[in-house]
């Protein structure tokens, strides 16, 4: 049982996550109901883009989450490499597929928004290309963290990838200012204040918080699953050692 002692700290996490999970999931569900109500019923169509603007209420929150999630990966990777906290690598491993999911949503909904508004599904402009690279970085992270027999080695390799790839995060954010893109520039986080009509802000922020809550709900579930399967692994190793 000696190799179980290192789960002492994660055991505390298990207790905390068990208490937190119903609250996070419940708040997320309420935010989704409110957000969807505002996004679909209680907000006007755009004066130029008509009802396609409703795609924004899933596109923009998932874009924010794809960047948030990658920053989370990079920070968790750094914490894991520097302080060797076991939960840091575990949360990075749990977060990477969620980030990939959000990035896939941004690309797909952006495409579905681009076709009627720009006349094309895809264009190799700076914003779209850098987000596609972000998607590949997520896939690389997922593949690397599972590529070694020893999960600790995979976690370290993936953490290095996350840190190197972090340079892409500001590139994505500022791509619409640095280069001429078909994608429109930022209209919410501007120094001059949002350029978007105030009637569109409640659904946008409600959905953004719902996506954030969804991320943490999934993260807690996935870390708990990972902890449980590692415990299974440790018990199997202990049983084998006892049998010898």
């Amino acid at each position: 049982m000696a190799n179980l002692h290192r789960f002492a700290n994660p055991a505390q996490f298990q207790r905390l996550s068990r208490a937190l999970l119903p609250w996070v999931a419940g708040i997320t569900a309420i935010l989704f109901v409110l957000g969807l109500y505002f996004a679909l019923f209680a907000s006007p169509p755009d004066y130029q883009q008509g009802d396609t603007v409703r795609i924004m209420y899933v596109h923009v929150p998932s874009a924010w989450m794809s960047l948030f999630c990658y920053t989370f990966l990079a920070v968790a990777g750094a914490v894991g490499l520097i302080w060797r906290h076991p939960l840091a690598f575990m949360s990075a491993r749990a977060a990477a597929p969620i980030g990939a999911g959000f990035t896939f949503i941004v690309l797909a909904t952006g495409s579905l928004w681009g076709k009627p508004m720009w006349g094309t599904w895809w264009v190799w402009d700076a914003r779209l290309t850098s987000v596609l690279i972000l998607f590949f970085l997520y896939l690389g992270h997922i593949a690397l963290s599972r590529a070694f027999d020893d999960p600790a080695r995979g976690a370290k390799a993936a953490a290095v990838l996350a840190l190197v790839g972090a340079v892409n995060v500001p590139i994505i954010k500022f791509s619409v200012d640095w280069w001429n893109t078909l994608h429109q520039p930022a209209s919410v986080s501007r120094l001059a204040g949002p350029a978007i009509d105030s009637s569109m802000l409640p659904p946008l922020f409600l959905m953004a918080f719902a996506f954030m809550g969804y991320f943490f709900t999934l993260l807690l579930i996935r870390i708990r699953a990972d902890l449980a399967s590692r415990k299974v692994q440790a018990l199997r190793v202990a049983a084998l050692a006892a049998a010898e």
Binding site: G50, D51, I55, H59, G101, F104, I105, A108, L112, K115
Partner: peptide, 21 residues
């Protein structure tokens, strides 16, 4: 407003990805 072919697939696809995760 005539954009059903783009708005609904976008929303449904988002829901499918989120729920399957």
């Amino acid at each position: 407003g005539g954009y059903a072919a783009f708005v609904w697939p976008a929303l449904i696809l988002t829901a499918v990805v989120l729920v399957s995760m």
